[in-house]
Amino acid sequence: MFQPVSLFVGLRYSRASKGNAFISFISFFSIAGIALGLMSLITVSSVMNGFEQSLKSAILDLIPHVQIKQSEQLDKQRMTALEQHPLVKRVTPYLVSEVILQTNQDLVGVKLQGQFAGYSNTLDTQIESGSLATLHNNKYQLALSRYLANKLDVGIGQQVRVILPEYSTYSPLGRTPTQRLFTVAAIYNAQSEADTYLAFADGKSLQRLMRKSAEQFDVSVHLHDAFELQAFYQEASPLLSGLQYQDWQTQQGTLFSAVAMEKRVMSLLLGLIVIVAIFNIVSALSMMVSEKQGEVAILQTLGFTPNMIAKVFMAQGMYNGVIGTIIGLFGGLLLSSNINESLHFIGLNLLGGAELPVKFEWRDLVILTMASVSLSFVATLYPAKRASNVLPAEVLRYE
């Protein structure tokens, strides 16, 4: 006989085709509920992870993860140690200033970031037209986002007046902000919020406007993963001691906190579907216990202990939970992988032909799967306890 015997009897009850139709109906919907709930959780979680990854790539790759000010305080030994830190991707000289870009069409306030030639960056992968080589090889060149170029109505080779309110010069008319005509050398498209407020210039040209020497610049530290900021601070605290610095959370922390909160709320709401399905397991097993009291009593007379009886109904409930979890897991992976094709099939198209980004976090998948199975197990405890308390003498008295 199939061993252990409690599992054998429990699976026989689960797969039995005959019996109370209403109980079978509830059992079916408990499996369907768990599958749909888990599938929705995996799909939403994967899309939100993809959205978060897209934001991180589009925004955080363009700005310093940690900006160290006054580089003259950062000696060569500490600079080398920072570059060799396992969490650090690159360390580069860096300048930034609040400026106003002005044309005959419009004016807009942006952050003008100075990048120095000879150092790697991610801007070159987002260039739509023009060239970063032109930006670095010629004086007073500018890289604008597609959004800013359209707003200012300029293209490659046209000029934009750059005004630095923080720096001023004396003229016959009095003190006036430092300003200079820049030529548009490149247009990039990060497809993120950074497009609305970020422009780039060669670091040496920006140094001249800010009246800084060649040795005066800030230092940009990019991590392999921007979200490992706290771990970096803990490990590199001796290297940062005595330095003035700020990180990306100052500018973008609110945005990513909002995305993380939205992901948690969506997961909580969709998790309620799984919880409702778990209650269906409790209902189905409770009714099954009431219906099978006679069979439970007979099993006890054949030598089943209360503990074995409890395991019979726990096996039956876990069968529904595990089957629903497996269907939901594979259904969620399949739907997430083909979410854009599914939207196109039902006639839903995102604005501008954009597609939903998808990223699978295997840790999240394991947690969701284990949580579903664990809740299914918890749901079996009460009905199994009831079954184990059945007294065969009372049940079989009038049989």
Rank of each mutant, 00 (worst) to 15 (best):
V47R: 00
D75I: 04
V162E: 15
Q113H: 03
N280K: 07
E128A: 02
F8S: 06
M318P: 03
L74V: 10
T305K: 13
F116Q: 07
M308C: 02
P165N: 08
D124S: 14
G109D: 09
Y94C: 05
H224D: 15
D247T: 05
S267E: 11
A81S: 11
V108D: 12
D202C: 03
L343S: 08
Q252Y: 15
Q179K: 07
L41R: 03
H136I: 08
I298N: 13
E128K: 10
I26K: 12
G353Q: 06
L87M: 11
L198I: 11
N121M: 06
I278W: 11
L272R: 07
L209S: 06
L229W: 03
A185L: 05
H222D: 13
L365N: 01
R211G: 02
Q158A: 05
A258C: 04
V378F: 15
F360I: 07
Q126I: 07
G174S: 08
S336C: 05
E341A: 14
L365G: 01
S57N: 13
T103Q: 09
L142C: 02
N280F: 05
E52I: 15
I100M: 14
K292T: 14
S6G: 05
L7H: 11
Y147Q: 12
I327L: 15
R78A: 00
V276H: 13
V378Q: 13
Q141H: 10
Q158P: 00
M39D: 09
I367A: 13
G50K: 10
L209M: 15
L7K: 13
L60V: 08
L334R: 04
A35H: 07
L132G: 07
